[in-house]
């Protein structure tokens, strides 16, 4: 896989990708249908979806939207639904769980502005628990997106997959990691950098922080492996076990509560398979708050500096 990471941001924002890719998917496949809860204008879909039979604005009624999507799935469509993360998870969880998951009506749920990406919308709009909720749904796929080209690849892959697929993705620009046109297979961790001292499994916006942390640590003589573990479920257990064995020290990094997300998923694999020291970079069990994203990342301990500290802690715990 071609990696083009140099620390710079992609010129494209995630919302631009969502807008153009959902349109492209709808044009390619007449069974693709996109539903939103009055947030089309926030992800760049309004200009095509408002006037298309394949775009359904459900209004501010997420529970109904999830149910309608499940009904459309039963009718032969491939629905993608979108709202901000908290409303795409907590607000309609029972509807997605039963009407889509339990009933066997596959849908894709896009929860935008995960965690601190909600920034100026503040604590009410800041989901730190969405991955925990969706991980606990049988048969689900949970994806935390780090890069625009990864998003393009993932949006295509989920279209014909069974079960409930949850994509958490920001709306702003993010570091460019993968080369244009790369396919990033769901279910596989992607190794972006290799080092023998420790491994960092990171997702979403924390992947860039992990790669920055690797640079800092290298200057101090600590070489780390960095893996993009964007598929939080089903977790690439073989990858987790392999690097745990090879490095003997594990750190997870995610824009999410430490309960129920990547840290939990990795620990579940390691506890029975390769019990090495594990440290986490994640939100302590607290609610969100308002502010610029860089302030919030510092406030909640989600920066490269925090990863550096946790790597050192994990390395120090090695036998």
């Amino acid at each position: 896989m071609k990696i083009v990471y140099n620390g710079e941001k992609d010129s494209r924002a995630f919302k631009d990708i969502l807008g153009t890719q959902l349109q492209a998917l709808a044009e390619e496949d007449p069974d693709v249908i996109y539903l939103d809860a009055d947030l089309m204008s926030c992800i760049g879909t309004a200009k095509w979806a408002m006037d298309s039979n394949q775009g359904i604005n459900c209004g501010i009624a997420e529970a109904n939207m999830a149910g309608v999507a499940a009904g459309l799935s039963a009718s032969g469509f491939k629905p993608y639904i979108h709202s901000f993360g908290p409303f795409a998870s907590r607000r309609c969880y029972d509807q997605v769980y039963l009407s889509a998951g339990y009933a066997g009506n596959p849908i894709t749920v896009i929860g935008s502005d995960p965690g601190v990406c909600a920034a100026f919308n503040g604590g009410t709009h800041m989901p730190f628990e969405d991955m925990a909720l969706y991980r606990a749904m049988p048969g689900s796929t949970v994806l935390d997106i780090a890069d625009c080209n990864q998003l393009i690849s993932v949006l295509k892959q989920v279209k014909d997959m069974d079960g409930v697929k949850y994509i958490r993705v920001g709306r702003k620009n993010c570091a460019k990691i993968y080369a244009d046109g790369e396919e990033v297979p769901i279910g596989k961790g992607v190794t972006l950098r290799e080092g023998k001292d420790a491994v960092v499994f990171a997702t979403g916006i924390l992947l860039h922080e992990a790669l920055q942390a690797a640079e800092t640590l290298a200057k101090e003589g600590i070489e780390i492996t960095v893996v993009d573990m964007f598929t939080v479920k089903p977790l690439d257990a073989a990858c987790v076990l392999q690097y745990a064995r090879e490095t003997g020290a594990v750190v997870t990094a995610e824009n999410h509560n430490k309960i129920g997300g990547l840290y939990s998923a990795v620990c579940e694999v390691l506890a029975s398979g390769e019990p090495v020291p594990v440290e986490y970079v994640a939100v302590e069990d607290v609610f969100g708050e308002v502010g610029p994203q860089d302030y919030l990342q510092k406030q909640f301990g989600l920066t490269a500096e925090h990863i550096v500290e946790k790597v050192k802690a994990a390395v120090a715990r090695k036998k």
Partner: peptide
């Protein structure tokens, strides 16, 4: 024709099915 049990959900599912039939 549809799974139900958590009250209220069938109304939305049926709306999606009706919309789906119309679009098809």
């Amino acid at each position: 024709d549809m799974t139900t049990g958590s009250l209220g959900q069938g109304t939305s599912l049926a709306a999606g099915m009706a919309l789906g039939d119309r679009l098809k």
